[in-house]
Design a protein around this nucleic acid. Structure first.
Length: 800
RNA sequence: GCUGGUGUGGCGGAAUGGCAGACGCACAGGACUUAAAAUCCUGAGGUGGCAACACCGUGUGGGUUCGACUCCCACCACCAGCACCA
């Protein structure tokens, strides 16, 4: 039997029938399964794609059989650097490269027999798609959530090119290995920070895995503390943020981020401004890598000529700048309490600054006595004026109240999550749909002129001044102002490749709508994505971006639900056979399509599911293919044993298998579901009689895993209807057996195994155990203190 | 450093607090075969023993329990994410 031929035949039939089309507004209950849409790269489908598409296909097929109207769509996340670089290298247009790659991906996915609804296929680089990406961006702009600001980009000084974080991993340029530096550049930003609290709270409405929620919380990084208004002796105001207001009397200096606006503003008053400038330049030259990974050694520079006043006691203290203070977090300035903060401690040691101990119970000779050391231990304040003697916890409240009463600040929350740098100086992305007019400023492109399409050009190489390649195309850049009709220039930055994936699940609900991004009623019908499967690498960024866009749309009445995804799950990372990470450079990548060619789609599907726990990181093993091939052959061979008779010889194993396979699929335990099918197959092979009904159940159970061969066998047997019209059911009663072997323990040690009738009462069973010849000797002459019976498992007799 | 996760045979991996190692891989023996492949049957955690059997076994050390891979405490190792976040 040639599996490949059968597979082709059924794939053709399914396609012609439109068998897996999702129906808008169907009476059936809906179920929306989403896999992250792939990036159609030149290398084709890889092991990061196939197990999750297969796994979700299994769920989709089971849900359909159970009577659900399943939406299981697919599309292409095709904008972005890899394609652009590939196109540059091969001197072809990224449009052509994308088309080619998509065609290849599509062929590969189809050969696996994944039941996607291809009528809803989307492509982020399609003008009809990115029209709406641009439209949504403009909604952000119109609500004041998109703004221009100077932000640093990763810059390779040798290649003279801006790099993404991915291209400058480890702080070096991916192409030439030169350390990258931070270069300021005016960019579009999305005010994601305004949604920090909503994104945090929204997690409560979802059913993501706890670790995924935890990563998101971590990324959002909420921290509750105190904002305090401070003054310099020049009269200038600044704010600091602290989570340890109880140490406010321990301030011996303040530290600003080098980028803090007051530094430049006060250049005339700072007597050593030359030195300050030098320090600022030095920190700017530092790469992200040096700043974060390398040395946590402190450095800094005093702002001589000015000092700051501790608002709590009026004390004058020096002011420094240092790169250990991050401009974008809190207010970009900190109060320094070296006695109670490790970083301040190191800094104070370096500059020989005084320390004031304000929390009792520590020893600051060699290190700071930090909050981790003193919180919750009943430590009390000292050297803190009227707050001395309070416990740390009391002091926090008292000081916050004091600051509030005196207009000096109060309790606030701060978030690590930054605004989203939404510009890329590249070609292959969605153009930012704004026009700059000398008279009117930034003007949105009117809806009826969307999309702003990418010009079809020969040259789209990155420029050496860091500007977008689009800026070189005068006939595209020069336009008229939609507002006043005068001369204007288009924005030449494009959106990051995260943009298209920030709303794609909505488009699947209504992929061909040319009036709106998706019809509201359709979105209402399909609701939240019930199950969203993706890679661990997207748990923070993509998932947050997606939730951010969705929540924004919800707040503006454009989508019916506040959260896009109900459940988010993650497949395990697939490693090379030796347990190392797969990578192109190590040359140990596996092409899953080879296994489709070698064994066929069904075997390959089963093999990948049988490799291990779906959610755990695990090595790719070809070893699982053979036994799965064997399994299918055995199932095919069973057909010859069928008898058109009635028999309930197999009712127990069938009921058990229906229960186990069904539950395992729901719980993503595909590997044990496959084992159970193996167990069932063995049992039927050994059975005296296998009826048509028995075989039907077996075929239905394996159908989601091996859809082609199971449907083929169904047809060959001339069974009525279609194999996936329903999902098999079992009777609880069939799970009961009239004899079961249990273990008998005396004093928790197994002494015998005996058969019992499980329908008997506990008393009856215990009585028969105690009179059993094998057990008697162990309890004779002893006093029984306790008897434990675990139904169908064991009896434990405690005897002294 | 912080957060989350994972530690079970030679290997991948199973086990609502209840007979650890299901199901497989690799291995060994056997059947079929001129032979091989394929297929089928049998065996197997470790140590000791001809054997019945005994003892030891789920990263380490404690604890709870009649009973712990499973729950609690401490620690170790590895993986992932974050990281000078005030």
């Amino acid at each position: 039997m040639d599996f490949r031929e059968i597979e082709k035949k059924w794939q053709k039939i399914w396609e012609e029938e439109g068998r897996y089309k999702a129906v808008d507004f169907s009476e059936k209950p809906k179920y929306y399964i989403l896999v992250e849409f792939p990036y159609p790269s030149g290398v084709g489908l890889h092991v990061g794609h196939t197990p999750n598409q297969i796994a979700m296909d299994i769920i989709a097929r089971k849900k359909r059989a159970e009577g659900y109207n399943v939406l299981y769509p697919i599309g292409w996340d095709a904008f972005g650097l890899p394609t652009e670089n590939y196109a540059i290298k091969h001197e072809i247009s990224p449009v052509v490269a994308t088309e080619k790659n998509i065609a290849n991906f599509k062929r590969q996915i189809k050969s696996l027999g994944i039941s996607f609804d291809w009528s809803r296929e989307i492509n982020t680089t399609d003008e009809n798609y990115y029209k709406w990406t641009q439209w949504i961006f403009l909604q952000f702009y119109k609500k004041g959530l998109a703004y221009k600001a100077t932000a640093n980009i990763n810059w390779c000084p040798k290649c003279k090119i801006g790099l993404s974080n991915e291209e400058s991993e480890g702080g070096v340029c991916e192409r030439c290995g030169t350390p990258t530096i931070q270069k300021p550049k005016t960019q579009w930003m999305l005010k994601m920070s305004a949604y920090a609290e909503k994104l945090l709270q929204g997690l409560e409405e979802t059913h993501y895995w706890e670790n995924i929620k935890s990563m998101q919380r971590n990324w959002i990084g909420k921290s509750v503390g105190t904002n305090m208004h401070c003054k310099l002796d020049t009269g200038d105001d600044f704010d600091i943020f602290t989570t340890c207001i109880e140490t406010v009397y321990g301030i011996t200096y303040f530290v600003f981020a080098p980028e803090h606006p007051l530094v430049a503003k006060l250049k005339d008053k700072i007597t050593n401004y030359d030195e300050v400038l030098k320090y600022i330049e030095k920190t700017q030259r530092k790469s992200e890598f040096e700043r974060t990974q390398l040395l946590k050694e402190k450095s800094g520079c005093q702002l001589k000529g000015i000092s700051a006043i501790n608002p709590i006691n009026g004390q004058k203290v020096p002011v420094f700048i240092s790169d250990y203070v991050i401009a974008s977090y809190g207010s970009g300035a900190v109060m320094a309490v070296p006695a109670h903060d490790e970083r301040d401690y190191d800094f104070a040691k370096l500059f020989n600054l005084p320390m004031i101990e304000v929390i009792s119970g520590g020893d600051i000779k060699n290190k700071a006595f930090e909050k981790a050391d003193y919180l919750g231990k009943g430590c009390k304040l000292i050297n803190s004026d009227k707050f001395s003697g309070l416990t740390v916890e009391e002091a926090k409240d008292a000081l916050n109240s004091y600051l509030e009463e005196h207009g000096l600040g109060g309790k606030v929350a701060t978030y690590k999550m930054r605004d989203w740098v939404f510009s890329r100086q590249r070609y292959w992305g969605e153009p930012v749909p704004l026009v700059y007019c000398e008279k009117c400023g930034w003007v949105p492109v009117p809806d009826d002129q969307l999309p702003v399409t990418l010009p079809k050009v020969e040259k789209y190489h990155p420029t050496d001044d860091g500007e977008s390649p689009l800026s070189r195309i005068d006939e595209w850049v020069n336009t008229t102002c939609p507002h006043c009709g005068g001369k204007a220039k288009r924005e030449t930055d494009v959106m990051p490749n995260w943009a298209g994936s920030s709303w794609y699940w909505l488009r699947y609900m209504d992929p061909n709508n040319d009036k709106e991004f998706a019809n509201f009623d359709k979105m209402k019908y399909w609701g939240k994505v019930d199950l969203y499967n993706g890679g661990g690498e997207h748990v923070t960024r993509h998932l947050l971006y997606a939730r951010f866009w969705h929540r924004f749309l919800y707040d503006n009445g454009l989508v019916p639900y506040s959260e896009p995804f109900d459940r988010r799950i993650q497949q395990g990372l697939i490693l090379a056979a030796d347990g190392s990470k797969m990578s192109k450079s190590a040359g140990n990548t596996v092409d899953p399509m080879l296994y489709v060619e070698k064994y066929g789609a069904d075997v390959s599907r089963l093999g990948q599911m049988f490799m291990g726990d779906y959610v755990e990181t695990k090595p790719w093993k070809e070893d699982t293919m053979k036994p799965c091939e064997k399994l299918l052959k055995r199932i095919v061979a069973l057909k010859d044993k069928l008898q058109d008779v009635q028999s309930d010889e197999n009712k127990f194993i069938l009921a058990q298998s229906i229960k186990k396979v069904g539950e395992d699929i729901e719980e993503l335990k595909f590997n044990t579901a496959v084992s159970q099918i193996m167990v069932l197959t063995s049992a039927l092979e050994k059975a005296k009689v296998v009826t048509n009904e028995d075989y039907k159940v077996l075929l239905k159970l394996i159908n989601p895993f091996a859809p082609h061969i199971s449907e083929e066998m169904w047809t060959q047997c001339n069974f009525e209807g279609r194999i996936d019209e329903n999902w098999p059911k079992y009777n609880e009663a069939d799970l009961k057996v009239n004899s079961v072997e249990i273990a008998v323990q005396v004093n928790s040690k197994i002494v015998a195994r005996i058969d019992i009738d499980p329908t008997q009462s506990q008393e009856e069973i215990l009585a028969s155990v105690k009179t059993d010849e094998k057990i008697k000797p162990y309890i004779e002459g002893k006093t029984i203190v306790k008897e434990i019976y675990v139904p169908n498992r064991l009896v434990n007799i405690i005897a002294k």
